[in-house]
Amino acid sequence: MIPPAFEYTRPRSVEDAVRTLADAGEDAKVLAGGQSLLPLLRMRLAFPELVVDVGRIPGLRGVREEGEALVIGALTTHHDVIADPLVRRHAGLLAAAAATVADPAIRHRGTLGGSLAHADPGGDLPAVALALDAELVAVGPEGQRVVPAGEFFVDFLQTALRPDELLVEVRVPKTGESDGWGFHYEKFSRVAQAWAMVGVAALVRREDGHIAEARIGLTNMGSTPLRASAAEEALAGADPDGVARAAQSAAEGTRPAAEPGVSAEYRAQLARVLTRRSVLAAAGMG
């Protein structure tokens, strides 16, 4: 219950934060909303020497439009993501999935950037970032770089972020319903507040009653979030029966973990069933 002792600093700017991180090296942890880090500290699963609280850095909160993309500040809370009119209009999948994260109190404090940088494959938003083809913008000592979501999640709790880099914003291509996009996040958990046993983020573009393009992000089907690529290919041109057939390949190429009461085969089954349901809902075919 008691976190280990650490030094604490609250940088006032991104540059300040990056400098601090560069000086501290591997011994520093970034604190945003704290909803992932605090539990780790309390269970003494993390022992940082320095906690860099970026929570009050100005300019990292909120949503803006930039051409065909939305730019969401890394410190935007789940609660604000869910409520944001731009997100709802242009990236409804993100709002829908954020609404399933943990519980209201945690959604008030937890941030989009924090969830992505924590990179828990059981978290809901990494799979959504994959499905949205989001780009993650990091700032380091050498300046800014953009990492596609597909390259960001490296392994269990590991990202492409370097220790001296700070995730500052997330760029999401617009997938508005007016452009024919439909979305659904299907989360399967044992109790309401539990992490997803499996989750399926579906984003589909419809044309003439069938699916023109589908992007499927899978939560908790491996050590990182995954795209269900085989299912995506099979979904092109699918009608409702075709969706059911395509969903059969949703677990291809995944490596779901087994745990007590949850076999890998069962997770694969969930991926197939939830993919079918999620795609049908996203396509308005349900």
């Binding site: 219950m1 604190l31 909803q35 605090l38 309390r42 269970m43 109190a105 945690i106 404090r109």
Partner: peptide
Amino acid sequence: VGCDTSNCGACTVDLDGATAKSCSVLAVQ
């Protein structure tokens, strides 16, 4: 305080107009 994993919510308070689990917030925050 009812747990050490942010699950139970017994410690919920209002922090600047929004609910927060006070076991998952540092006093410095």
